[in-house]
Simulated scan of single mutants.
Amino acid sequence: MPTVFQVSPYSFIFFSSDRGEAAQIHVKRDRQLTKFCLNPVFIDKNRDLKEHELSQIRL
């Protein structure tokens, strides 16, 4: 899973196995992971990131 960029403590990554799905980016912190679809931007899945963290990431 290549890292697109890092904004401490968050890694923005993609999975090559996501082929055939809409454009998306995954945000990871420790063992927590959220998947954002990019067009339009919305949270597709969230695994344990808190709402205040999601608000920061969306900015």
Rank of each mutant, 00 (worst) to 15 (best):
Ser8Cys: 12
Ser8Asn: 15
Ser8Trp: 12
Ser8His: 15
Ser8Gln: 14
Tyr10Trp: 15
Tyr10Ala: 07
Tyr10Asp: 03
Ser11His: 04
Ser11Met: 03
Ser11Gln: 08
Ser11Glu: 08
Ser11Tyr: 04
Ser11Ile: 01
Ser11Asp: 08
Phe12Leu: 13
Phe12Glu: 11
Phe12Asp: 11
Ile13Lys: 14
Ile13Tyr: 02
Ile13Thr: 13
Ile13Gly: 01
Ile13His: 03
Phe14Gln: 09
Phe14Trp: 12
Phe14His: 12
Phe15Arg: 11
Phe15Met: 11
Phe15Cys: 09
Phe15Ala: 10
Phe15His: 14
Phe15Val: 00
Ser16Lys: 12
Ser16Cys: 03
Ser16Gln: 11
Ser16Glu: 13
Ser16Arg: 11
Ser17Thr: 12
Ser17Pro: 00
Ser17Cys: 05
Ser17Gln: 12
Asp18Gly: 06
Asp18Val: 05
Asp18Ser: 13
Asp18His: 10
Arg19Phe: 08
Arg19Gln: 09
Arg19Asn: 10
Arg19Glu: 11
Gly20Ile: 00
Gly20Asn: 02
Gly20Glu: 01
Gly20Asp: 02
Gly20Phe: 00
Gly20Cys: 03
Glu21Phe: 09
Glu21Asp: 06
Glu21Asn: 11
Glu21Cys: 07
Ala22Phe: 06
Ala22His: 08
Ala23Trp: 03
Ala23Gly: 07
Ala23Val: 06
Ala23Cys: 05
Ala23Gln: 10
Ala23Ser: 13
Gln24Lys: 15
Gln24Pro: 01
Gln24Tyr: 02
Gln24Trp: 03
Gln24Asp: 04
Ile25Phe: 10
Ile25Leu: 15
Ile25Lys: 11
His26Gly: 06
His26Leu: 13
Val27Trp: 04
Val27Leu: 07
Val27Ala: 07
Val27Thr: 04
Lys28His: 03
Lys28Ser: 10
Lys28Ala: 13
Lys28Ile: 12
Arg29Leu: 07
Arg29Phe: 08
Arg29His: 13
Arg29Glu: 08
Arg29Ile: 02
Arg29Pro: 00
Asp30Ser: 12
Asp30Met: 05
Asp30Phe: 06
Asp30Glu: 14
Asp30Gly: 09
Arg31Gly: 11
Arg31Met: 10
Arg31Asn: 15
Arg31Ala: 14
Arg31Lys: 15
Arg31Pro: 01
Gln32Gly: 00
Leu33Ala: 08
Leu33Asn: 12
Leu33Ile: 14
Leu33Glu: 14
Leu33Cys: 13
Leu33Lys: 15
Thr34Cys: 13
Thr34Tyr: 01
Thr34Trp: 00
Thr34Ser: 11
Lys35Met: 12
Lys35Val: 15
Lys35Trp: 04
Lys35Phe: 06
Lys35Asn: 11
Lys35Tyr: 05
Phe36Val: 03
Phe36Pro: 00
Phe36Glu: 01
Phe36Trp: 06
Phe36Gly: 00
Cys37Gln: 05
Cys37Ile: 01
Cys37Gly: 01
Cys37Phe: 07
Cys37Pro: 00
Leu38His: 05
Leu38Ala: 05
Leu38Asp: 04
Leu38Gly: 04
Asn39Thr: 07
Asn39Met: 03
Asn39Leu: 03
Asn39Glu: 08
Asn39Ile: 00
Pro40Thr: 01
Pro40Gln: 02
Pro40Arg: 01
Pro40Ser: 02
Val41Gly: 04
Val41Thr: 09
Val41Leu: 14
Val41Ala: 06
Phe42His: 14
Phe42Leu: 07
Phe42Ile: 02
